[in-house]
Design a protein around this nucleic acid. Structure first.
Lengths: 215, 215, 215, 215
DNA sequence: AATGAATGAGGGTTCATTCAT
DNA sequence: CATGAATGAACCCTCATTCAT
């Protein structure tokens, strides 16, 4: 956004409309016309404020990210004692965030999917921006794993990778459930997913093979 | 495709061109013009044969899927004795398939990414079709896990899910390497990925926690 | 123009409309909409045939130039015996051409004026093209002057430059008269200009200073 | 300009910015935005003061013309004794003016080129205004020629026209050299043009034909 | 059966001008 | 007096789809 002293309400309306529509239809299928309509603003104003559809997209991303980031309580992660607690706690918290900010997370998800479809000058910029938000999860996992003792022959990076894979898979499930809409609207509805993660972390920690077999 | 008397060679050329171009640029950025040009066929003929861009897309998917499916040797999976062997063998085979049919797999990958961007009537259809090819992997994994003894308290479905998650993650890596082009063109180049899978399966089987700690 | 097997009548209608409108309003103020309307053709067709407004412009120039060039009788120049005859004959012929092809010449004139206003990729191309038609006049003049004896101390290039300046000035007058429309529609109406040229060439040849003064 | 209480400094800044930008990019490609920016003034103020882009253009022309006119020393012409001296002296003086007021002359030149591209109500007005500055040269030439004896059969107006044509052609060369920028920045750099004018005036006065041939 | 010319709706973008503050 | 946010019409261009041939 330029350094334009713009009407904050209209800017907010545009950014919100953009977030909704980009999140719903992706970059290419979201016309500035529709965004202007939903924001109850002339199409020209969007270009006055943001210069181009691409910049509107980036600014929408920044705004959305900032809003979510400000709402996040990062102690959730740092407070955790063991792996299972940390991951389940963080996941539960992330789900609660997704329930509180469904449009924001839908936009994020769509942004990931949009990435390869973006026009060239935009894509590169978004590629760099998107990394920042993603690293977040893996960093925390690394830190926690780092503190744990490992069985001989086990490489730490593989554990990290495994845990990340589990989290990613289950997070995808959450997104699907939310996208499907319907009855999944309270944190309790997602308990099965928390349980599933717990069970899988248990397997990663102790294996699925019977213990006596090995002795 | 309609029951129109059609020239099989032209149909094949169109489908191949569509697969290449859809796979390269995604649905939205693939114009029928380009497809017609690459297929050395008039644009009208595409609509004559396939009715619309959407139907061409679906038919391209079916054709590509069928071609790959026919080329697959399913004994690979059924022959395996234990989990690690099965998965590594299957993965190696899958990689070899990707090397043999790069355009086809690129199209599949792009189809996944395209899914949320497809125009509404198309999207629903594709959503159902795409599941079929994915199930493939999970089915085999299920069968193998089914035969293995589990530690008390471990649910089979969680093991299946874990193994699937690992395979999915590593498969994504393979796709990235292939998409990047360059030197990854022989099966040996992917040995690190095979090793990574093996190490992770080992963790899934025996856990990463030190054994003595638990006794 | 691409190698499109296009309806020659429509192509001709478009080129004629483009010539008229570009010639009337210049490049920037000539909308493809208006051209399409005047050509009784959809706007899309213009882009189908010519690809862009720029290419339409260039093709219009080529077409117009070719049409005029084909109509020209180049013997007019080569047949002339002395300077005055050559120039008056050529000018009279050029005027008759302008009367026969007023829209074409108006387009040429406008093309010259447009040159500095053209968008960058177009400008360079047009700059090269426009030279070809202009050189024509000066070349012939050079050839004729080359054959004539000069007074001591007179440089040939200055004579050429002078004659060219006269021709250019008077040609501009003709264009103005034609642009003004009105009663100047027959070759006889331009006799004063021919006479003016003749008188000026006489001055260039023999000077305006009284002869006896110098002896 | 209207009878609005206006800040003279801002008016001056706007006019100067307009002159620079109109001169650089022509009427159509000069946005009021850019002018406002360069003048460090709000866009609204321009419309407040000048009413419209068109009126700003005319006012810019008037202001620039007035400024140049006031700076001119008209004795230069009246002092001259013979034709060659007068023309060379005047030309040299004109070049020195162009060097002293490059932006102003660039604007004038551009104004000429813009003329046919101006929107209708503006064009007519500018057409009348522009004549005034041009007449300037021709008037002086007339006066000087008036005093000179002519060879029998030579009409005065033709001599005037010839001399004007030479001056116009060479002046155009000067403008080109200046527009090209580079090393032409001192009056001495233009000596070749002065020489060329002198040589051509000599031809106009005494002809290029050898004298003895005629006796 | 096969062509590709033709369409027209919609895309992003620019900019002089207006007007509430 | 001065601002610059806001508008909307017009711009060039793309493309799936239709249809006469």
């Amino acid at each position: 956004m330029k350094n334009i002293v713009s009407d904050p309400q209209k800017v907010a309306r545009i950014l919100r409309a953009a977030m909704n529509i980009f999140g719903e239809s992706g970059y290419a299928d979201s016309s500035t016309n529709r965004i202007a309509q939903e924001a109850e603003v002339s199409k020209g104003l969007i270009f006055h404020y943001f210069g181009s559809k691409s910049e509107l997209y980036i600014d929408t991303y920044h705004d959305t990210y900032t809003r979510i980031y400000a709402a996040m309580d990062r102690r959730i992660w740092t407070d955790a004692e063991d792996l299972v607690k940390m991951v389940t706690q963080a996941t539960r918290y992330k789900i609660s965030l997704q329930l509180a900010y469904p449009a924001e997370f839908r936009f994020f998800l769509q942004a990931y999917r949009d990435l390869p479809h973006l026009p060239e000058p935009l894509r590169e910029k978004m590629q760099q921006e998107l990394k920042q938000v993603n690293v977040l999860g893996e960093e925390i996992i690394s830190e926690t794993i780092e503190k744990m003792p490992l069985r001989a022959g086990v490489e730490r990076k593989n554990v990290i990778f495994l845990v990340s894979a589990v989290v990613a898979s289950e997070t995808a499930k959450v997104a699907d459930l939310l996208a499907a809409g319907g009855k999944y609207q309270r944190i309790e509805d997602f308990q099965p997913i928390i349980d599933s993660i717990r069970a899988q972390l248990d397997i990663i920690e102790h294996g699925f093979a019977p213990k006596d077999v090995e002795s």
